[in-house]
Amino acid sequence: MAKPRKKLPARAVDIFCANCKTKLFKYRKGGKGALIKCFVERITEDFTTTPCHCPNCQQEFARETMIRGAPAFKMIGGKVTHK
């Protein structure tokens, strides 16, 4: 399968923990659908201390995986919100 595009999308969204509303990432999201996965190369600011865990409440919000040959975080349903 094809890798994600190298050119980053224009739209940046903030990703928050659904439990404690702590800011987790600033992410360049393509499309208008739900947030299912985050490619690591599209994260512009990372506010987490350990990957896939909220720095405030320590809840796991994603799992590390490879999608189309690129490292990504696969989001767990209902654990994150974005604006």
Rank of each mutant, 00 (worst) to 15 (best):
I76N: 01
G31N: 09
K37F: 10
C17S: 07
A10N: 07
E41K: 12
R63A: 09
C52H: 05
C17G: 02
F47D: 05
A70W: 04
C20A: 08
I67F: 12
M66Y: 11
P51K: 08
F73Q: 00
M75V: 08
C54L: 07
F47A: 14
H82Y: 10
E64R: 07
H82A: 08
N19I: 08
T22M: 14
H82F: 09
F61I: 02
T22F: 13
G69F: 13
G77C: 10
K79S: 10
A72D: 01
I67S: 10
T65W: 10
F73A: 05
E64H: 10
K83T: 05
D46H: 12
E45Y: 12
G31T: 09
I76W: 02
Q59D: 13
E60G: 13
K21V: 07
R42W: 02
M1S: 06
P9E: 06
G78S: 12
K29M: 15
L24M: 14
E45M: 15
I43D: 00
G30I: 09
L8E: 03
H82V: 04
A62L: 01
G78V: 09
A10C: 08
C20M: 04
A62M: 01
F25V: 05
L35N: 02
K37M: 09
K83W: 02
A34G: 14
C20I: 03
P51E: 07
R28K: 15
P55V: 10
A34M: 13
K83S: 06
R5M: 06
G33P: 03
T48W: 02
T22Y: 11
D14N: 09
T49W: 08
G69L: 11
L8A: 09
G30H: 08
A12Y: 06
M66D: 12
L24H: 02
F16E: 02
C52I: 09
A2M: 13
G30W: 04
T50W: 02
A18L: 07
P4N: 12
C54F: 03
G78C: 12
G77V: 11
F25Y: 15
C20T: 05
I76K: 02
K6V: 11
L24S: 02
K37G: 03
R63F: 05
Q58E: 11
F25K: 00
E45S: 14
C52Y: 05
K3C: 13
A70D: 04
L8V: 05
R28T: 14
E64D: 07
I43V: 14
N56P: 10
D14C: 08
C17D: 01
C17A: 07
T22K: 14
K29Y: 14
A34I: 13
F16D: 01
K74R: 04
D46N: 15
A62I: 00
K32Y: 11
M66E: 11
K3E: 13
N56I: 14
T81D: 04
K74G: 02
T22S: 12
R63E: 06
Q58I: 11
E41P: 02
K83I: 03
A70Q: 09
A62Q: 00
A62R: 01
T50Y: 05
T22A: 14
Q59S: 13
N56Y: 13
K23V: 09
M66I: 14
T48P: 01
G77W: 07
T81K: 08
D14W: 05
H53Q: 13
